[in-house]
Design a protein around this nucleic acid. Structure first.
Lengths: 342, 342
DNA sequence: ATGAAAGCGCTAACAC
DNA sequence: GTGTTAGCGCTTTCAT
């Protein structure tokens, strides 16, 4: 008998049926709006269901439907700064459509990732969203079945897969355009390690518009680490060989914080002497700086939302393919306030 | 016929049974290690299962078992800084035990929260973990059924509920003890809005140990906002009325960053003239400061892990009750390096 | 418009 | 040891 089973026993269609004096099948029809039901019995059934607080068992339905209305969200990023907004956006877009989201933190460990995939396939997820920390490619998720996968933020190495990523080149162009428009002509660039695609792409975008404007980048992009300390150090280097510097674009807001400190130490005023732009638009950090930092918002939330939509399309039988880049935008703050250089 | 159903058709126990020349029931036994099975047939079954890449349908099992081995993780915090490490910890502890986690961001909207609860109850989650942004109480989750709930970080207003939170008073005591041990005797305190329980508790803990040491807190706790700007402003205020100040404990790392800047502007050396302690141990922020900040790590990950364990206990029929506080610890960095004041 | 019956995939009694 | 049967909760033909 079922009295011995572990879990709590909840109301079932049968209970509702008994209470409303109908058959289980009729309850199903009434509650799902399928088939033909007389308004009065429908009302009776709905009432009965509410009285006993009936909540249909989605699991049972899923067994029958052969799909679960769930998706797996796998991050390799230990929830760090970048994947979080993406996941937030994805959850937002998915949750609206009756989909529930399984959260998995693989910590960049292929074994763990594999484990999660297996478990979730067992749970019959309708698809996966995979996200990471960087713009660098990652090996495709191996899901040898007809379960769709969308890569967010971190694209798949297989160009046929569907990936939604940030537009790093556009970020660099946006920063460059803004500085040119402000009349700056001697622009330096400080950024993270060169092996980050994001760093190289931002540098390329910046160089492109600076070249076009006839005021090429000072020196070269100063690749280093994503730390404030590097921001300070690189700024000192830049200032030494380019005392006429009037703007710096930084590959992250933390770098820009470091740059701001170094500039102040060197007696340069921001933005009067040197305009400063960061990247990430990390509010706490950008707002708290002295002065508050103009920054490029990479649209991470939108990356997540778009990835979710692409996944829903794929689940509905309309798979997308290739890499899509989400637009970024510049958030102006005091570090680039209007005011001529010098 | 099932050929018409939407979802992909996967291998079932019946397929495995056919391939291995046994009955479905036998397959179940073999694969689950229940009942008595001859080693050879078991091997044959396992082989057959692997050959057709059989993955048992967890949904079907759950219908039968009346539990899903899933839990709902509800945050009201839009994944902001504090709930993320908690959720990470919870997912970690849960994932290890074959549990999968549903991610829900209610955005502090009771309607959305209700919606998520309903949906997840339909999915027959075994329990809920509810997390938020602050140490302030929140109204209990209404789950009128025998589904356990554990509150993490943000305790339930019902003291009979099971809540796992940060030990804010201990944080204050830890900071105070450390400063006393360094020989500091003129300690100021800057923190967030007074309506944050966390702020008041940390202040109380700090005051307690300073009083005990015979060097009571300077002035009063300077309540304000959780921003760098307030950290700078409050430091200026403190310095004006207490020029002999030799240490500041800040209720957050950002506040401490602001304090550090203001101290430097005022010509005070850190830690030589004034020692500085922050709270949160937000690595990027604490490490990048000049000098790097000593900070109290509140153990958010552990809050999540413990909450998960408490939930697992409750699911196993051993519910806990009341508020549990997780230990915090001090992470020493240069802002409190050994060195007498003055 | 409603009921009876069969089936989704899996598991657990109970036979043999 | 292994097969058979019944049933988890829900849905959907197919009769009526």
């Amino acid at each position: 008998m079922n009295k011995e089973r572990p879990g709590p026993t909840r109301a079932t269609v049968r209970d509702v049926a008994a209470r409303a004096g109908v058959s289980p099948g009729t309850v199903s029809k009434a509650l799902n709006g399928t088939g033909q039901i007389s308004p009065t019995t429908r009302a009776r059934i709905v009432a009965a269901a509410e009285e006993i607080d009936f909540r249909p068992n989605a699991l049972a339905r899923s067994v029958f439907e052969r799909r679960s209305y769930t998706v797996g969200l796998i991050t390799t990023d230990s929830f760090e700064r970048f994947s979080v907004p993406v996941m937030l956006g994805a959850e937002d877009a998915l949750g609206a459509g009756q989909m529930s989201v399984f959260l998995c933190d693989s910590r960049d460990d292929p074994i763990r990732e594999r484990h999660y995939v297996e478990v979730l396939l067992g749970r019959r997820v309708d698809g996966f969203i995979v996200t990471g920390r960087t713009s660098n490619e990652r090996p495709p998720l191996h899901v040898d079945r007809d379960v769709p996968v969308v890569y967010a933020l971190t694209p798949s190495a297989d160009p046929a897969d569907c990936s939604v990523v940030v537009d790093d080149e556009a970020a660099g162009r946006l920063a460059g355009d803004h500085l040119i428009r402000l009349g700056r002509t001697a622009v330096g660039h400080i950024t993270g390690p060169e092996w980050f695609d994001a760093a190289r792409r931002r540098a390329a975008g910046l160089a492109e518009v600076l070249d076009a404007a006839g005021h090429p980048l000072l020196d070269k992009p100063w690749y280093g680490g994503w730390t404030e300390a590097w921001g300070r150090q690189a700024t000192q280097i830049l200032l030494r060989s380019n005392p006429d510097l009037d703007a710096i674009y930084c590959g992250s807001d933390l770098l820009a914080r470091g740059a701001a400190d170094a500039l102040r130490d060197a007696g340069r005023r921001i933005p009067d002497d040197v305009a400063l732009i960061g990247t990430d638009n990390w509010e706490y950090i950008a707002e708290g700086a002295r002065p508050p930092l103009t920054s490029i918002d990479l649209g991470l939330g939108e990356v997540g939302r778009l990835a979710a939509r692409r996944l829903l399309d794929a689940i509905a039988g309309q798979p997308h393919s290739g890499v899509e880049r989400v637009a970024c935008h510049l958030v102006a703050r005091a570090s680039t306030d209007e005011s001529g250089p010098h």
